[in-house]
Design a protein around this nucleic acid. Structure first.
Lengths: 331, 331
DNA sequence: ATATTTAAACGAAACGTTTCATTTTTAGTG
DNA sequence: CACTAAAAATGAAACGTTTCGTTTAAATAT
């Protein structure tokens, strides 16, 4: 039903190879170029991606594999990545694996079967074992958020440990000695690093003490963690929250308990600049360069696609920033 | 590099058509089936989707086109839709258009060029003009959230007007006469219907009055709207928030102003059950059947793909629910 | 055992591009 | 104006499946 090169050929009288050249940026005589363009218009023609892919072995499609999209951070990263790839002519096939490692492996196969030219992923299985299937097929992989122990490939990460340090230094600077950490899951290395980074710096002096409350990643768990930490009466004067949802949950809990920030308790949040702006007083938080993470991941992929055998792997570590608000009080 | 039917042929001695039959569910002699399976194993074979698509004219890929993924509602709908499609063997190419109608049109073309078998979209352009390109190519379209004025096609919507009614009745029942509505943009028909539905019901009696505060969709604007509405001293005793982000922003603003819910002010929120559970007192809210919306949209699409010329269009309206909390006080 | 029906396997021709080795045309030179 | 070099157009052979009309093999009936 849709037109083909042959239809263009019938209209213009040009050969298939010339027409192909037109669509692939070769040199044509001006009159031929115009007559092809006229035919395209007339036919409402677009190149058949199947046939093109069959010859060129490229789909101009990237597989995106993430644990979920309910986490705002993931959703926004994905949104940005898709958009950038799109502006370079690449589509994004998105798969989530719901925190399930088995699903992660099968989603990867699924994506590869769809002939994606590359995979961008926030891996769950931190060994990276599942990714071997991609390299077996010669499909490049770019990691976001954390490296994979047994799979060397391009990656964009963030200095989570340093993020922890920064938060700790901020509390130290203001004289805090008793801090609660709303830490999230221990087996997730981003979260773990933020927490251990904090402790490393904070506990350099014995007079300072931190209480770690592990949980999942959700707002609800941030809420619960605050209730737990404060009811234990450790004499905590500050809270460090290690992702967006936890921060929000914690904030809501504090409001409910009528704890004034920062008079009753100081808070350092994580991730979301937007949130910082709206709260009053503005929340001091560690922010990740979300946009830049997405841009970098997309660029790593695009460059890798251009030079498939560029040697070595590039691991790009971006900086988190302490966005100073007014939620940490000197004591 | 990856194997082909021909390689399987060399190993098994069977013809290409027999091998094709194997992959397309025809009847084979048991021994042949086994020998093919052995060959597949040995070769690590997977069917080439380009070649298959070229013949079958199907990509087993659906295009998903939404305004953005930063809105939690959209992100979750998408996550679910992708997952369901995936479980039926369909990939999802996701495009966002950032609230930009020009981008919406070009994203649609982009998706069609990628040979998607169908389009599931939350349309921005409410005329649906841009969708004509899809039907010109015979690509089915399923709408979510709202219909398109000039484009009849399958759709999943929600009774937004009735949602407004419900909220109004709840306030009326509790004796409220002065309500503020945090309404979002007027030109977005979901938001508009929630608001107009509310007004329709609420203003049946002249003694009741509602103040509408229009804004964008973000948390920040929910926050600002509350400040505006309350500083105007209309004597408002309740607030109706018309989406998740606005609800959250409003809640934060109220907390900050030390307005107790529901003693100082009653609140009905929208969209997010999770939020309701965590807040204290639990927030009364109107919830959309998110999961069911996603399931229905995916099913409409899958069924349409199976019977491309099933006559008529199916418009499925799902019900919102009032989730009773304790944030509306009788006065 | 042979004839007949049914089921399974086969061969060849598409599907719509790209590519490479050739041929034709154009532009450039003495 | 013929002659060469460079640029553009050409034809044919892939790419890896599916499909359809036909042949061959297996199963059933005579």
């Amino acid at each position: 039903m849709p037109g083909t090169y042959k239809d263009i050929q019938n209209i213009t009288g040009l050969s298939l190879s010339t027409i192909s050249k037109y669509f692939n940026g070769g040199n044509l005589r001006e009159e031929n170029r115009l007559s092809i363009e006229k035919a395209i218009e007339e036919l409402d023609f677009t190149v058949n991606a199947f046939a093109r892919g069959l010859k060129s072995r490229q789909s101009h499609t990237i597989g995106i594999l993430v644990p979920d999209l309910s986490s705002t951070f993931n959703a926004i990263i994905m949104e940005q990545v898709c958009e950038i790839l799109r502006s370079h002519g690449y589509g994004s096939i998105v798969c989530t694996c719901n925190g399930n490692q088995k699903a992660e492996k099968s989603s990867l196969s699924f994506l590869l079967d769809k002939m994606v030219d590359g995979i961008i992923t926030i891996p769950m299985d931190e060994t990276g074992k599942h990714l071997e299937e991609a390299s077996k097929r010669g499909t490049p992989v770019v990691l976001i958020d954390h490296l994979a122990a047994n799979f060397k490939t391009d990656a964009v990460i963030v200095n989570n440990q340093e993020a922890g340090h920064m938060a700790a230094r901020e509390f130290i600077l203001c004289g805090h000695r008793h801090i609660g950490i709303i830490a999230g899951p221990e087996d997730m290395d981003t979260m773990h690093l933020r927490c251990s980074g904090f402790l490393e710096e904070f506990q350099k002096e014995n007079s300072r003490k931190a209480w770690v409350c592990r949980s999942g990643l959700s707002m609800e768990e941030g809420y619960d963690s605050v209730k737990k930490l404060l009811s234990a009466k450790h004499g905590i004067t500050g809270l460090f929250c290690t992702n967006y949802e936890l921060t929000l949950g914690a904030y809501i809990a504090l409001q409910e308990m009528h704890k004034q920030i920062p008079n009753d308790i100081s808070v350092i949040g994580f991730d979301n600049m937007l949130l910082s702006g709206i709260l009053n007083p503005p929340l001091t938080m560690i922010v990740q360069p979300v946009k830049q993470i997405a841009v970098t991941a997309a660029e790593l992929m695009l460059e890798r696609l251009e030079k498939p055998d560029f040697p070595g792997t590039r691991i790009i570590e971006l900086e988190t920033q302490l966005l100073a608000g007014a939620s940490v009080k000197p004591i």
